[in-house]
Design a protein around this nucleic acid. Structure first.
Lengths: 192, 192, 192, 192
DNA sequence: AATGAATGAGTGTTCATTCAT
DNA sequence: TATGAATGAACACTCATTCAT
C-alpha cells in the first residue's frame, strides 16, 4: 500500500498541471464561467479529480492567476533594477498589473470579490501584487513622482476598476487609454 | 363614457408599480440576480403578469434605473442653474452619477453590459446620462476647469469603473474617496 | 337597451370575419400552432373577443376549414355534372380533398383528431366531405371503376394518411405522387 | 485491475435500463408527450441522470425504438429465409413495420419528423428499416410480385401514413385493415 | 359585446458538488 | 487517488383561458 506512492504522486502532479493547462485554454476561449465539467472532460479527468485539486472555481482561478503572478514578480524585479525614474517605473507597473488583471475575460470580477479577503486563495495571491504596487508607489512618492496621500491599495483598486471598465462590450482601445490617462493625470486641467 | 375611463388600466398600473416596488426591495436585499419568480411571488402576481410588464430582467432593471434618471435630470437642471464654477458643477455631477450607478448592489455590471448598446432598454436610458456628462464636461473645458482632451464618454466610463471598484466587498469609504480623488487629480504629483 | 343592437351585431360580424382572415394568414405562415394571442393581437381585437367567437383553437380551425368546404362542395357539384367516368370523377375528387387536407401546414392532425367525432365542430364539418367521398365512391363502384368492398370512410381516412405522409419534412413531390399511386393501384403487380 | 472493472458502470447500466423501462410504460400509458420529469421521477432518478443518458426526448424515443428495431431485424432475417413467395414476404414485412410504427401512441409523428434526417438519432435508426423494406421490395419486384416502379422509400412512407391514419381516435380495426388493403391493391377495381 | 390584464401551472435544461466504486 | 454517475434545486419563459371593467 506504500509501494509506488511516489508514482501516484507524480500522476497527481501531472493531472494538476494538465487541468491547469486546459483551464487556461477554456477560460481564455469561453470566459471564466465555463462549466467545470467541460474543463474536466477536456483535461481527460473525472469531475472528482478536478474537484480534489481545486475545490471550487475560485481556487482554480487563483492557481492560474498565481502562475501569472510569477511573471509579475519578475517584472517587478526588473523594474526595480531598471534605470528609470520612479514615476516611470510605477507607470509601467500599473500597466503590467492591468494586463494581468485582464488575463482572462471577466477576471476583474473574482479579483474584486477577493479584494482583501486574505482567507480566500485568490485574495491571498493578490496580496503581494498590492504590496508590490505599494512599494513602487512609496518609491515614486519619495522621489516626488506621485502624490503622497495615496496608498498602494487605492492605486491597485483604481486600476482594477479601470481594467474592468475598459472591458465594456463596445469600449474601444481609445476609451481604455483615456481612462488610464484620467487615472494618471485626473480629469482636471492643471492650472499653470 | 370619457370620464376617467381607464378600464383595467388602474389595476395594471397598480400592479406595475407594485412589481417595481418589490423589485427594488428584492434587488436591494438580494442583489440584482434574484429569480424573477421571487419578485412576482412577493409582489403577489403571477409570473405572467411580471413578464407582461417587463419581458426580461434587463427591462425591469431599466425601469428601475429610469426612475432614478428622473432625479438625475433634476440634479443636472439644478446644477446648470447653480452659481458654481463649471469645475465644481462637473464634480458634483460625477458624484451624483456614481451614486446613481450604485443605487443597487451589482448595478454597474448591467450598466457596463448596456454600454452604448442603444438597442437595449437600459442602454437607451443611459444615453442621456452620458450626454449630460458630456455637456457639463464641455462647459468645464471651456472654462479651463477640465482637460480639453477628454470626452463625456470617457468620464462616464471611468466613473462607472470607480463606482464598480468602490463596491468591492471590503472597500471602505476611504478607498472610494481615494479612487474618486485619483479620477479627479490623477496619481501623479503635480510638478510645481 | 334594445336600440342599436343591429349596429353592435355588425361590429361582431366584422370582428369575426377579421379574426378569420388573420387566422388564415397566421396559420398559413406560422403553422397551426401559433399562439392564439398572436392572432388576436394582429387582428386588433382583445383575446377575449377572439375567445368569444371561437372558444378554442379547434373551433377556429373548424371555421376556416368550413370555408374551404364550400369550395369542395362546388367541386363535388361540378364533378357530378362532368362528363367523366365515375372512376375519373373519384380520382379528381380524392385529389381535391387531399389538397383541402393540406390547406394549412399540420392540418391533417386536427383532422384525424376530429375523425368521426361529430360532437366537435371540426368533426361535424368533415362529415359531409366523407359523405361526398362515399357518394362518388358508390358511383364508381356501380360503374365497376372501384372495388366494391370499400367504404367512403376508408378512402377518406386513407387519403388523410397520404396527405399526412406527403407532408414529411423532406418528402419530395415524387414521394407524394408515389403514395397516391399506391393508394390508387396498390403496390402489388397486377398479374396479367 | 482489469478483472470485471466496470466501476459504477453497473449502476449506470441499471439506471439506463430502468429509465428505458419506465419511459416505455409512460409513453405507452400517457403518450409520447409525457413530461420527461415525470419519467425521471417515476424511475427514481434525478432529472440530470435522465438527461445524462438521453439528452432529449427524441434520443429517448430513438433508444426505445432501437430496441424494437432489433426485433425487426430478426423478423427480416427470418422472412428472408422463409419458404414464402417474395410477395408474401413483403406483405408480412409491411405488417411488421406497421406494428413497429405503432409501438407507442403517437410514434408515427416523430418518425415522420425524422424522415430521412440521418443526422438525428431517430432518423439514423430508421434508415435500416427503409433499407430492409427496399430489399424485400426489390425481391418482390424481381419475382413479379410487386410493381416495378416503386421504391422502398415510397412504400415505407405510405405505410407510415397508413399506420398514422389507423391510429385515428375512433378508427376501428376494420378501417385499419381497409387502408392496408388499399395500400396493397389500390382502390381501383382490377379490370378483368 | 369588447377589452386586455391576470393567471399560474408546466417544462426542458444546467451544473456545482457529492460519493460509491 | 481517480473516476464519472448521480443528484436535484433552480429558472426563465409561454400561453390557453378567465373575468373584472
Amino acid at each position: 500500500m506504500e509501494s509506488g506512492t511516489k508514482g501516484r504522486r507524480s500522476d497527481a502532479t501531472r493531472n494538476r498541471a494538465r487541468i491547469l493547462e486546459i483551464a487556461e485554454e477554456c477560460f481564455a476561449e469561453h470566459g471564466l464561467e465555463v462549466p467545470l465539467d467541460t474543463i474536466a472532460k477536456q483535461a481527460g479527468v473525472g469531475a472528482g479529480t478536478l474537484y480534489r485539486h481545486f475545490p471550487n472555481r475560485e481556487t482554480l482561478i487563483a492557481a492560474l492567476v498565481a502562475d501569472r503572478i510569477g511573471d509579475l514578480q519578475q517584472i517587478h524585479h526588473d523594474l526595480v533594477a531598471a534605470k528609470l525614474t520612479a514615476g516611470t517605473r510605477l507607470e509601467r507597473w500599473l500597466e503590467a498589473i492591468r494586463t494581468w488583471m485582464t488575463s482572462y475575460d471577466g477576471l476583474p470580477d473574482p479579483l474584486r470579490e477577493a479584494w482583501e479577503k486574505d482567507a480566500t486563495m485568490l485574495g491571498a495571491h493578490c496580496r503581494p501584487v498590492v504590496d508590490m504596487t505599494d512599494q513602487l508607489l512609496r518609491d515614486a512618492q519619495q522621489h516626488g513622482d506621485a502624490r503622497p496621500d495615496l496608498s498602494g491599495r487605492d492605486l491597485y483598486l483604481a486600476n482594477l476598476g479601470a481594467a474592468w471598465a475598459a472591458s465594456a462590450p463596445l469600449a474601444d482601445s481609445q476609451s481604455g487609454a483615456s481612462i488610464v490617462d484620467i487615472l494618471g493625470s485626473g480629469w482636471r486641467a492643471t492650472t499653470p
